[in-house]
Amino acid sequence: MLQTAAILMLESTINKLLQTDEVTCQALGRLNGCVFEFKISDAPVHFYLLPYDAGIQLQQQFEAQADASFSGTLRDFSQLLLAEDKATELFGNGVLISGDTRQAGKLQRIISGAQIDWQELTAAVTGDLIARQLANFFSAGNRQLQITSHSVQLNFSEYLQEEIQLLPPRAEVQGFVADIDDLSQDSERLCARLDLIEAKIAATKKA
């Protein structure tokens, strides 16, 4: 019963968020009648998603075969939720899709195109003025956070590479790795050539 309650709460939350995005709701309506299965391999989470024109319905059990199935680890799915380019995360980084990939692709495009209007949701609680100020605050904060984190990353690499010279610069490491690759390939070629010469000598001796 607890799992059912959790599923109901999740479904209700997602549907409330989707109510602010009419375009996504309309797109979900075009998938009405389809069933998508979600399996998270490293957590006891397994549910079915049924889209309809005003949101989604979640179920723990579904007797028939789902149209498409998405499976992956919790990390894969959380990366998908947080990623800016959801298409890359969905298809390139661990989430496995099986079944009707055309329908799965449609759902993927709907997820990646979803634009939740957080400001409108906040406005329902706080009023328009405060919601606008909060949105500006978080938007500016987010931009500043991105700039700061990028700057910290650059400064930290520079300190490790240039100041205390604990790590080599990226280009030097790449050159070194490329040299190793070349050496490895040369060794393999030499080895193959020696094998060929040995085979020829053995054949000459036999003759």
Partner: peptide, 16 residues
């Protein structure tokens, strides 16, 4: 009551 009804639907075996 929502959970009771949800469990009923889950166990119904309903499909398209």
């Amino acid at each position: 009551h929502r959970i009771w009804k949800k469990l009923t639907i889950e166990q119904s075996g309903a499909r398209a």
